[in-house]
Design a protein around this nucleic acid. Sequence first.
DNA 1: ATGAAAGCGCTAACAT
DNA 2: ATGTTAGCGCTTTCAT
Lengths: 336, 336
Amino acid sequence: MKKKIALKDIAQHVGVSTALVSYVLNGRAEEKRVGKEIAEKIREAADTLNYRPNQIAKSLKTNRTNTVGLIVADINYRFTSGVTRAIEAEAGKNNYTVILGSSDEDHSKFAELVNVLVNRQVDGLILVPVEKSESQIEWLKKHEIPFVLIDRNFPGIQANHIAVDNFRTAYQCTQHLIKTGHKKIGFINYKTTLYHLRERDRGYFQALEDHGLKNNSKFKKEIREKHVQEDVLRSVQELVAQGCDGIFFATDIIAINGLKYINGMQLRVPEDLAIVSFDEAEAFELFYCPITHARQPLEEIGKIAVNTLMDIINHNQVNRQIYLEAGFVLGRSCGE
Amino acid sequence: MKKKIALKDIAQHVGVSTALVSYVLNGRAEEKRVGKEIAEKIREAADTLNYRPNQIAKSLKTNRTNTVGLIVADINYRFTSGVTRAIEAEAGKNNYTVILGSSDEDHSKFAELVNVLVNRQVDGLILVPVEKSESQIEWLKKHEIPFVLIDRNFPGIQANHIAVDNFRTAYQCTQHLIKTGHKKIGFINYKTTLYHLRERDRGYFQALEDHGLKNNSKFKKEIREKHVQEDVLRSVQELVAQGCDGIFFATDIIAINGLKYINGMQLRVPEDLAIVSFDEAEAFELFYCPITHARQPLEEIGKIAVNTLMDIINHNQVNRQIYLEAGFVLGRSCGE
DNA sequence: ATGAAAGCGCTAACAT
DNA sequence: ATGTTAGCGCTTTCAT
């Protein structure tokens, strides 16, 4: 890499001090009452010498990096791409850069990433926490490092967070299956302690109870995160064998796998089996029957997350626990 | 954010100089022959004081950030998630962090991102260049900033790059349709000057020619990047009207849209229409018929890209133009 | 209106 | 074996 042009190079070139150059190039010429001509000369020199400010040096001095760290759970989730895009856009508006890392749902990788990002002096973090990452969150709180949680949170830890209302959304999904005349409603969810997924359980159970279908709860299946394919296959087979006429999938990934096997089993949707999915997937478009599903407001989550983080960074008092309403997309997978 | 512990704090705490602390904490205690006991004390102090090295300061001094910038074309492409994952993993092994940005196929956004990343002193860049980004690439060359192109390149610009062999892969895809007995083979590709997509054209045409189907070239359709949905729909309709018995889709995005409309038109694959796609999509799994497609070696591309970049950064002479072979996944979308 | 200089936290050359 | 110190490129206070 060629030698870089520094502030003092252009100061030398013009024959002024570095202070003036700094003022002018930071748009504070007026404020600092720098002579018009000098200012112009400085700008010219910066241009011809192709000056690029060294953000590292600037950061060291100002103690600000204008960088936020974003740790997602898995880069393949629909949630991730949508929310990442929104976060990058909103961060850009605030003149911030996003450093992205993926924990792949692994808490040690999560801890490692937090570490790396904090060492790199990010001004704040936007986190999708994973199982067993409570101690990391506590650590961030203790050290007063600005952060906001999205998608997930821990009921025992008070922190700023933005997410969809999982309970309510799951309730609606289940209720939709009930209202479209289905009597034996299966539910497939991950086996996990993650609160947001437990909330989806609660929504399912509550809806059953409120509609006098409490006995349906035996149709709830749990799958292991490391064995999605085989467990979903087994679960679908079991539910069908138990005579279910509808299935509610707790996530897009589960839904995609479920539908794949339903295809394989030659079952027709919605005639043989009604389907509702929490979250949408691009893949749904290729299924012969439009899938009814809840849609998270990814744009909004990302936007609010960034703005909340900005508030924290700028030392405004913030205490936000936001549960957003999900959209509900009506397909034909529960009948017409 | 609480006051940070700095090197000198722990030096003070132990009663030694900052130099010793620096040596010990960078694992150079032996090399610098620091006393065993002192070294131990320093490590302890660092631990209890919860010292986190300030990478910014380190970078300013060493002129190295251990950061690579990755600019992708669109975060929703299958190519992106796969290759990002591979790059992050490989970069991590080399003790590097990845800063990700997405240009959304927009050259001014691309330029802006290059700028931001260079100002942030990334040690190098991995780029998926977009249309009209030639000047940026030239600029990077001129300033001897380490970079490697992936997925795409410009024939007029000599640069290190890693990609799949687009010509050969497209040739194989087309040939497969021919060999499975199809006579009127449509092809849908983007209208673009991007060389890698033009190479796919060339592969298609060459295969037709080599198999005496030169007249088929009227079945090639171009779609606009900003109007994928409507243009793909129109193209499929036209090809069907022209009596095509097979379609080759030039990208996963085009394929997903194409299949969606084929579904809508009540056409059966492969009976009414045979299909081959360049690139795979998760969505294919939900289509009733397994789609035959080429699969790019994303892992390998990412890995080689990082290692090439590391070589450049470490001043090894590097001149690599690598064209990898794609995998070919046999579905049933061209018949049994 | 402009300049001199301190100092951000760290590394490394040099001194002891 | 350990300490002292210059300096990375920038911002900003204080002088002038």
